[in-house]
Write a protein that binds this DNA or RNA. Sequence first.
DNA 1: AAAATATGACCGAACAGTCGGTCAGTCAAG
DNA 2: CTTGACTGACCGACTGTTCGGTCATATTTT
Lengths: 201, 201
Amino acid sequence: MSPLQKDPAKADAIIRAAIHIFARDGLDKGKIADIATEAGIGKGTVYEYFSSKDEIFHAMGDTIMSDMIDASEKLYSMDLSPHDKLRTFMRMNIEIIFEMEDAMLIMTEIWAQGARAIKHGEHPNTTLYNASRSMKQLVINILKAGVMAQEFRDMNYDGVATLALAFIDGFVWQFMVSSDRAAFDRALVEGIESFMKGLER
Amino acid sequence: MSPLQKDPAKADAIIRAAIHIFARDGLDKGKIADIATEAGIGKGTVYEYFSSKDEIFHAMGDTIMSDMIDASEKLYSMDLSPHDKLRTFMRMNIEIIFEMEDAMLIMTEIWAQGARAIKHGEHPNTTLYNASRSMKQLVINILKAGVMAQEFRDMNYDGVATLALAFIDGFVWQFMVSSDRAAFDRALVEGIESFMKGLER
DNA sequence: AAAATATGACCGAACAGTCGGTCAGTCAAG
DNA sequence: CTTGACTGACCGACTGTTCGGTCATATTTT
């Protein structure tokens, strides 16, 4: 039969290369030819694994989000008080995203594409939105546990979870264009402290 | 640059049309021809006013940011306690940006371009970064006044200002893709309250 | 064992569509 | 007549996608 199945590792290599190239050049300017070169294969081969540039976008989105959710869920299952869990969740999420600068840039563009798709009355990339929703649910669960344990004040969970996630996104976003790592760390500590203080009873 | 002899109102019309088209189709997919049509002029005329697509990007960024800063500074000069000023600043900023959905989408892409430019070792659109810095300074000034008036606790101003701005950006960003206006308002109120509570002495 | 055959992964030259930017010419005003 | 604002047909660079052909490897045959 088939002497060689299509190599799944090669599909991965293409995605990895795509993340690198698209983060560097943008979703539109990023060339399939460059991705192929980066992955060490021919341009035609890319199309043996993905039927279009758009399909590569989707695959990238899935990969990035599942990486992010995995990291967050591991954190969620750690044995910590709600207070420490939330604090750690925020700090680690910011650092994870910050390390994954490539991913952040791409997600931003995919997210913007989604917003535009909605404007056009089309369907956005649902994976991304489901993932975003499940992140929020994770935060809400921590908050509820904290209220139950009388560590946090009573609150509107959705609003506070939104504040937390907005802070994470916005914070990374602000520092994406700054290279002052020391300022970044100082602001991060103070930002999280201030946020946590807002939850006190 | 073109001489000022030409109709300045037409340059404005081109910028407005550009904001509409680029928000709808994205910075790359948005066509100069469409902008011309939207502005009710010929494609060639666009090039009488702007020498390239890139120059249009810059002009758009300038227009959007100066609109935003004007609104913020008007707010800043209002006669309110630091507490109310900050609260109002956040609420109004979010609502302004939310109404200017077009602007938000475009700014996001320009910002991402800037982050990429830095990666390449090039110069980003400085207007945008100066504007962003002056917004932060505005918040810091409010915070300092609040501490002076003993309304707020002592704090690291930069960190808290970053939290505030991150919240504004991230909040709008989260809701860009949701059409549930009621949830938006509930979350907004709770988010701001929680933030303000974190500043109490 | 070795030759013959079959398979499908791989490739990159060529194609076709797109779009930023140009320019030769029109038109209106003074 | 002169000026300059305006126009859109046109050009050419760029790039996503296709496709005919190559080649390494598995399978079958001798």
